[in-house]
């Protein structure tokens, strides 16, 4: 038993650090970890957790429903063995969650890039062994891993679920569908390259998280409308080239190409462009976004 009257205030002083330092690599890793916490609302007030976890839950619930549909179809006495061919699979799942993923991308990019700049925290970050390029690298790793996980984790669950409910057995299904292991990640990469790039460029310039997310979502919609109007609503000779600005549609067109499916006629397709063009646009958008964002941050720093 400690007698409270014996208590003394001890000045702990200052303890010097003798251990090893992780240097610039450690600083980048710290930026990545802090990026995860910020986007997912971890170690933040409860209301900051609501939107990201709602979107993640929605993506997972959707995949659970998809697996359920396949299970019901494979157990049904009528049409057994034929129904799975008609049911939505990996390519279609991308289509279904693309709206949810677009919202998640808008949120993640805005949360990663707006607050640091607006709250002046960059002054502290750049006084550490961290330069602009390494800071942006950390942010890019955080954004890419979060968004790709958003696409890939449900797809992985979907793949395992389909294998589990398939009549041919788990291992047989897995061995017969090896192409899924490259098609799904490749498609997710194209979605990320276009959508995240545009979201980051907007977030690198706007002063508010909500405004950046809103402009990204609105911008995607407006570009689609504009492209649709010029492709089909006018007879101008250059109208078809507006198909290139339908940025939201390029990943979808590439996805159909990768999975060899034909969901709808996408705007670039209607404008007469082939999937290679959409892939090229995706790469150009990504490179352009990296350059613009880098220019903006070097200017700020």
């Amino acid at each position: 038993m400690v007698d409270g009257s014996d208590a003394v205030i001890v000045d702990r002083g200052y303890r010097h650090y003798e251990g090893e330092r992780t240097g610039s690599r450690g600083a980048v890793a710290a930026v990545v970890r802090e990026g995860y916490r910020r986007v997912l609302g971890l170690r933040r007030k409860a209301r900051r957790k609501v939107l990201p976890w709602f979107l993640i839950s929605l993506a997972l619930i959707t995949v659970a429903i998809f697996i359920g549909i396949h299970w019901v179809a494979s157990s049904a006495p009528i049409g057994r063995g034929e129904a799975p061919e008609l049911l939505p699979r990996y390519g279609e799942y991308f289509d279904l969650i693309s709206v949810i993923a677009l919202l998640f991308t808008a949120l993640a990019a805005a949360e990663l890039f707006v607050p640091d700049r607006v709250q002046g925290v960059l002054n502290v970050y750049f006084s550490r062994p961290l330069n602009t390029d390494r800071y942006l690298l950390g942010k890019l790793i955080a954004l890419a891993s979060l968004i790709l996980s958003f696409y890939l984790v449900p797809q992985l669950i979907f793949h395992i679920g389909l294998a589990a409910v398939d009549d041919s057995g788990f291992l047989t299904y897995m061995s017969e569908n090896l192409d899924v292991w490259w098609k799904v990640p490749a498609t997710a990469l194209v979605y990320f390259a276009v959508h995240a790039s545009v979201a980051v460029v907007i977030a690198a310039f706007l002063p508010r998280v909500g405004a950046a997310a809103g402009l990204f979502l609105g911008g995607m919609l407006i570009l689609n409308l504009l492209a649709g109007f010029f492709i089909e609503g006018t007879n101008l000779w250059f109208g078809r080239y507006f198909g290139l600005i339908a940025l939201e549609q390029h990943p979808r067109y590439v996805r159909d190409w990768i999975f060899d499916i034909d969901t709808i006629e996408h705007l670039p397709e209607r404008a007469g462009f082939d999937p290679w063009t959409s892939l090229g646009v995706s790469i150009i958008v990504f490179i352009g976004a990296v350059l613009v964002t880098r220019w903006q941050y070097r200017r700020i720093a």
Binding site: R15, T22, G26, A27, A30, V31, R33, E34, R128
Partner: peptide, 17 residues
Amino acid sequence: AFTAELAGIPSTEARRR
């Protein structure tokens, strides 16, 4: 703690410091 990590101090030690 985060700024300590940026200065190259490992995560657990950063929180302590």
